[in-house]
Design a binder for these strands. Structure first.
Lengths: 185, 185
DNA sequence: AGCTTTGTTCAAGATTTTTTGAACAAAGTA
DNA sequence: TACTTTGTTCAAAAAATCTTGAACAAAGCT
């Protein structure tokens, strides 16, 4: 029934040493920003690969479970760190890594940071309300002060984001033209 | 022998609702940047407090273990997020929170990010070396390409940090200047 | 329709991280 | 010195997170 025994010859080949080493870097990077190892592995292998990879290539070459690949790709897609590439005459999904640092950062921030930041204002207000019950009026004043510090932090953070994104390149007008070596990438 | 029984009356009192709520925000924030709950709790309580707090006040009011307080304060000190305040005639260490957002961010980045980033260059070189053993020359060329992308990312990131810090330094005017009423009790 | 391929979901297992508390150290006090 | 206070360390327990794989769904093929 199965003329070809599962996957053909060299697709599930073991990783080359340089690939392992490269993937290790991404695993580190992932853990640095609080993402699980499997996510780093998947993105790392895609980053190494010369062609789009399929679900089962990821599973087999990395030696991780289908569940991990599925969930990993799901999150990476959500972050915009991985894109589906349609390949004619092939039913499988093929994935390629997003290579624009700016888009990677933006996706990560949008997905993992901004929601928390944005809910902050209402949380501060909530504390303000609770604070009305504090009997010690000096303490109450002090706490209001601290809340306004927190307010300031939030606003600063929000103002920071666009600046960061601009510095990462997309907005050419803000770019520093002295050290602009795009040649190699 | 001890006219004052340890800490005066209401120091190990249960947390007020507004304090709990405030601390909750810091716990969230901590987890957002990958720090354990206890760290958020400690910093949060210090942030609420009107006076410097001692080790055992933190332990008792938060209801966490001595080990957690000790390790938590250790890390917070390392990050520069908490400072020791010397109090005359008192053997205990008293802690106050760092309130400058810029210093908080800088401490965090210095401690948790920069080391990884800085070791990146040599890791990339290591992959380059391993890559010499790749037989498929087209793949080898492709991988070199990707490595240079990685290089670019690292450099951009490093250039980003000073920009961020500068953006955080600007608004001195809203900083809390009325927090000098520390002296009491 | 029935069979296969492709991918998702989720409960249970495995692993990692965090917390705890008892033993220890350091330094003040009497 | 012996005793107390204050804080640290670290192995083990607890909790949180990640991974696995089997059951399921969706869609193509014959």
């Amino acid at each position: 029934m199965h003329p070809t025994p599962q996957t053909s010859i060299s697709n599930s080949a073991a990783l080359a040493p340089w690939e392992t080493s490269m993937i290790e870097m991404f695993v580190r990077a992932a853990s640095l920003i609080g993402l699980p190892r499997s996510i780093g592995e998947i993105y790392g292998l895609l980053f190494c690969a010369r062609q789009p990879l399929t679900f089962d290539e990821l599973e087999q070459r990395l030696g991780i479970s289908r569940g991990s690949v599925s969930q990993g790709l799901k999150l990476l897609r959500q972050l915009g760190a991985v894109k589906l590439q349609y390949i004619a005459g092939n039913r499988k999904d093929h994935y390629v890594p997003e290579l624009s640092m700016k888009r990677l950062v933006r996706g990560f921030v949008r997905d993992q940071f901004s929601p928390h930041i944005e809910s902050g204002e209402s949380r501060i207000d909530q504390v303000r309300v609770l604070l009305d019950d504090e009997r010690d009026s000096a303490l109450r004043e002090h706490a209001l002060q601290r809340l306004s510090t927190l307010d300031t932090w939030q606003r600063r953070f929000q103002r920071l984001l666009p600046i960061m994104m601009a510095a990462l390149g997309g907005a050419k007008f803000l770019e520093n033209q002295s050290d602009q070596e795009d040649t190699v990438i």
